[in-house]
């Protein structure tokens, strides 16, 4: 019986493997968007790392991660809880099982939670900043995923 609602089921094949994906830096003042365009694999998000450099202080920014399905609907969203920013540069890490943390190691590394987030072909992830200054920059984004071959 087919599933209702246009949902896709896939069978994780043996031989799944971990790998890293590197979205292109978007340039100052722009959000970072990555689209899963490989048609024959499903990806389970393990971690997402990114750096955010602020050009000016004094404005409260909120760093936001969103996941979209292939139909363009938001299926998960998280704003960094400690991201009311007036700092100059922070490292961010969304990680499974972690609660929000704030560790000072030269610059901040903030961990957020990640649920079982499945990315099928056509789905996408966007990182953006509310109240983004014109010269604020997102860079060095890295996604660690576990890759499964799709078999519908």
């Amino acid at each position: 019986m087919p599933l209702t609602g246009g949902n896709v089921c896939f069978v994780p094949q043996s031989g799944s493997y971990y790998r890293y994906l590197k979205p292109t830096d978007p340039g100052a003042g722009n959000p970072l968007t990555w689209t899963h365009s490989s048609y024959d694999e499903a990806l389970l998000l393990i971690t997402l790392y990114c750096r955010l450099a602020l050009a000016v202080t004094g404005t409260n920014r909120y760093f936001r991660m969103r996941a979209f399905s292939s139909s363009g609907r938001t299926v998960w969203m998280h704003k960094c809880a400690l991201a009311q920013l007036d700092m100059e540069n922070r490292r961010y890490l969304w990680d499974r099982h972690n609660e929000n943390k704030n560790t000072f190691r030269g610059s901040f590394l903030i961990s957020g939670p990640v649920p079982y987030l499945w990315l099928l072909p056509g789905s996408s992830i966007t990182l953006d900043v509310e109240n983004q200054g014109g010269t604020d920059s997102l860079y060095q984004c890295l996604l660690q995923v576990k890759s499964y071959r799709v078999k519908t």
Binding site: P12, S69, V75, W76, S123
Partner: peptide, 26 residues
């Protein structure tokens, strides 16, 4: 195990209305 189902998206139900999802049979 027959595999994972990618996000089941449920339409917003409108104000003061609960949402629900009926799991397909079998």
């Amino acid at each position: 195990n027959l595999g994972f189902i990618a996000p089941v998206e449920i339409a917003a139900p409108g104000a003061q209305t609960e949402w629900s999802y009926l799991l397909p049979d079998e």
